[in-house]
Design a protein around this nucleic acid. Structure first.
Length: 102
DNA sequence: AATGAGCGA
């Protein structure tokens, strides 16, 4: 289950995400979104847990917590829209996203 | 160098 992690300090990197979320469960994937041109962090990222309940536990425990100076936001990541230039991770059935629109 | 809600090259 992927988690959206927002409100990160601009200095935070995926390594730190792994540390923090790794305290809750097994992190199978973590990334901090950086601006492709400037390389600066956009202040948010994604984390995936090997187990859904760990992810939920992470949401409860880490959402609203503070990382450094900022208060971070943690909740279930949205599904990336299919189609488009391809090159995305496989969108597996995560149930409940069928008609999500935004 | 700086920015501050956001859902990703």
């Amino acid at each position: 289950m992927r988690l959206y992690v927002g409100g990160l300090p601009y200095q935070t990197d995926e390594q730190e995400l792994r540390e923090v979320f790794g305290q809750i469960g097994v992190v199978t994937f973590a990334t901090v979104i950086t601006d492709r041109d400037t390389g600066r962090s956009k202040g948010f990222g994604f984390v995936e847990f090997e187990d859904d309940e760990q992810a939920r536990a992470a949401i409860e425990q880490l959402n609203g917590s503070t990382l450094g100076t900022r208060t971070i936001t943690v909740n279930e990541a949205r599904e990336r829209p299919a189609g488009g230039r391809g090159g995305y991770q496989d969108r597996r059935s995560q149930g409940g996203y069928r008609d999500r629109r935004y």
